[in-house]
Design a protein around this nucleic acid. Sequence first.
DNA 1: GCATTAACAGCCG
DNA 2: CGGCTGTTAATGC
Length: 226
Amino acid sequence: MISSERLSAIAHWSLELTESERERARRGVIEKSFGAGAFICHQGDRYDSWAGVIEGLVQLSTFSDSGHTVTLAGLAPGQWFGEGSVLKSEKRRYDLIALRQTRLALMDLTTFFWLFDNSVGFNRFLVRQFNERLSQFMGLVEHDRMATAPARVARALSLLFNPMLNPRHEAVLAITQEEIGQLSGLSRQVTNAALKTLETAGLVQAERGKIHLRNWQGLKDFVEGG
DNA sequence: GCATTAACAGCCG
DNA sequence: CGGCTGTTAATGC
């Protein structure tokens, strides 16, 4: 279990809960760390908790029929995930990998389902989350095939910065070009060149190990525009 | 062509 | 020093 203050700091959705709901939630959450490169869970595992990223970076990926990995999303601090598999109580459909030293908050299923059954605020959050995910994945299929390198980098970054999923969003994200490449499915060299393009367009600003967001809407538009 | 790996120098914490 | 970045050269689909 964690403190009420801690919950507020790492789970923006908790602010929508009533006092008693928040109390219930904090008692069902623990924290756990993962080393760089560690599998948080493999495709096919049964999952026993809902999770949020406290610090670090998580890659959500799967294997294409041709055998190489396809990254579906990157998860930055403040983002919560796994509600789909939890609600359907099915096996995980994706691999979750810690791209670097990562700390997660884990909520047990009893607590999750109690909130699901009792909290209006929690359900509002879940609906928004599903809505957002839906639009993300709808655009993904054709995008991965045809998109240019800068567009793919723009997509990875826009998801990480996504203020709907991550209202704690800060204008700066701690991520290396190597990691952006892993999330975009590109080499570091190409990622570097793509970032230059996005910088020139005034959408982001690269710094050593950091990306500053300058124009989030512009970043999203860049994804669509190819 | 465009992306990938390999290699290397420069930089910064 | 070690990790990140910017660039170039050689190679592959």
